[in-house]
C-alpha cells in the first residue's frame, strides 16, 4: 500500500518539469542588433549638420503650416464623404438588375481607376479650358436657370475635392460592393419575409452587416487619401505640403520643411486609426468573437491587475511563494 503511494508521488513530480520557459538567445541577439542600428540612424539624423533643428522648431507650429494642416484635414474629410456617397451609389448600381446602370457603374470605375490620379487632378484644375462656363438647365433646349464662369465655381479647392473624391469613389465602390456581397442571401430572404421593403432591407439589415467588411479597407483608403491631398500642390491648393513648399521656396530650407510636413502627416495618419478602431468595435457586435477592449478599458484592467498583484505579494507567505494566482 505504501509502495503505490510512492509511485503516485514520483509521477506527479515528473509532471511538474514542463513549466520552465525555453531560452531564446537568438531572439535577444537579433533584437539587440536592430536596436543598435535604429539608435545609430536616429543619432546620425540628429547630429547631421545639414539639418537645422531650430528651423524645424520654428515652422512646426507656424501659422501658415497650421492653416495647411487644417485644409488637409478638411479636404480628406470632404473627399472621403463625397467618395463614400458616390461609392454606395455605384455599388448599388453595379448590383442592380438594370443593365444600363450596371454598365454605367462599370464604365465609371474603368475610367477613374484606369487613369493616373495626378492626371485627373490637373484635368480638374484646367476644367476652365474645356468648359468656359457652367450652367444648369434642361438639356437640348435653351432653358437656363443658372450660369457662371467655370473658374469662379471650380476653385482650386473644388477641383481638388472633385478630383480626389471622384477618383476614390471608383476604388471605394469595389470595397462597398465586396461588403454588400459578403452578406448572406438568407438575410435578404428573412428581411423580405417579414415585409421589409428592398430599401429598408438594404439600410437596416445589409449595410450594418457589410460595414464589418467595409471599414478596415476604407480606413486604409482614408489614410491614402490624407497623403494624396499632397498631390494638390500641382494645382496650387494651399494644403500642408503646398504651404511647406511655398515656405521652402523662400527660405531654401527644403529638408527642414519636408520634415515638418512629414511629422504632421505622420501625426494625422496615427490619429485616424482611432476612429477606425471604434467603428470596427461598433459594427463588430454579434460577430461571434468577443469585442476587443478599448485602450481605456485596457488601462483600467492593467491598473486593477497590478493593484491586486501588489496586495497579493504583500499577503503571500514568504515560505510558500508558489501560491501566486495566474493573472
Amino acid at each position: 500500500m505504501s509502495a503505490t503511494d510512492v509511485t503516485v508521488q514520483s509521477t506527479a513530480r515528473t509532471h511538474d518539469v514542463a513549466a520552465a520557459p525555453r531560452n531564446h538567445p537568438g531572439r535577444w541577439i537579433a533584437a539587440a542588433a536592430l536596436v543598435v542600428l535604429c539608435v545609430g540612424w536616429v543619432v546620425s539624423l540628429w547630429s547631421n549638420p545639414n539639418i537645422d533643428h531650430a528651423t524645424i522648431a520654428d515652422f512646426l507650429f507656424d501659422g501658415r503650416i497650421l492653416q495647411g494642416v487644417l485644409l488637409t484635414v478638411g479636404l480628406t474629410a470632404c473627399s472621403m464623404l463625397l467618395a463614400t456617397a458616390l461609392a454606395v451609389a455605384l455599388a448599388v448600381m453595379r448590383l442592380s438588375a438594370n443593365p444600363v446602370l450596371r454598365v454605367m457603374s462599370w464604365a465609371y470605375t474603368w475610367f477613374f481607376r484606369g487613369t493616373p490620379l495626378l492626371v485627373q487632378i490637373v484635368f480638374w484644375g484646367y476644367l476652365g479650358l474645356l468648359y468656359q462656363s457652367i450652367s444648369l438647365g434642361i438639356p437640348f433646349t435653351s432653358v437656363h436657370f443658372f450660369s457662371a464662369n467655370t473658374n469662379t465655381i471650380v476653385t482650386p479647392f473644388v477641383a481638388g475635392l472633385l478630383a480626389l473624391g471622384m477618383n476614390e469613389a471608383a476604388y471605394a465602390s469595389e470595397i462597398v460592393r465586396a461588403g454588400l456581397l459578403s452578406v448572406d442571401n438568407g438575410q435578404v430572404e428573412a428581411a423580405h419575409s417579414l415585409g421589409m421593403s428592398p430599401a429598408y432591407t438594404l439600410r437596416r439589415i445589409i449595410v450594418p452587416q457589410a460595414m464589418r467588411v467595409i471599414i478596415p479597407p476604407m480606413g486604409n483608403e482614408t489614410i491614402s487619401m490624407l497623403k494624396n491631398t499632397a498631390l494638390l500642390q500641382l494645382i496650387a491648393v494651399p494644403e500642408l505640403y503646398t504651404r511647406a513648399s511655398w515656405i521652402s521656396a523662400q527660405n531654401l530650407s527644403q529638408v527642414e520643411l519636408l520634415i515638418v510636413a512629414s511629422a504632421w502627416y505622420l501625426l494625422l495618419t496615427s490619429v485616424l486609426s482611432v476612429p477606425q478602431y471604434y467603428l470596427e468595435r461598433r459594427y463588430g457586435r454579434g460577430a461571434g468573437r468577443s469585442l476587443p477592449v478599448t485602450p481605456w478599458q485596457q488601462a483600467r484592467q492593467t491598473v486593477v491587475r497590478l493593484r491586486s498583484r501588489v496586495t497579493q505579494v504583500a499577503h503571500t507567505d514568504p515560505r510558500n511563494p508558489g501560491t501566486e494566482a495566474d493573472s
Binding site: 438568407g186 438575410q187 452587416q209 459594427y283
Partner: peptide
C-alpha cells in the same frame, strides 16, 4: 402582402448584428 405571412427558414437566418 408578406407582412401577414410569417416564414421560418432551415438555416434560421437571424440578423447577426
Amino acid at each position: 402582402q408578406r407582412r401577414s405571412i410569417g416564414m421560418v427558414f432551415q438555416r434560421f437566418n437571424l440578423f447577426p448584428h
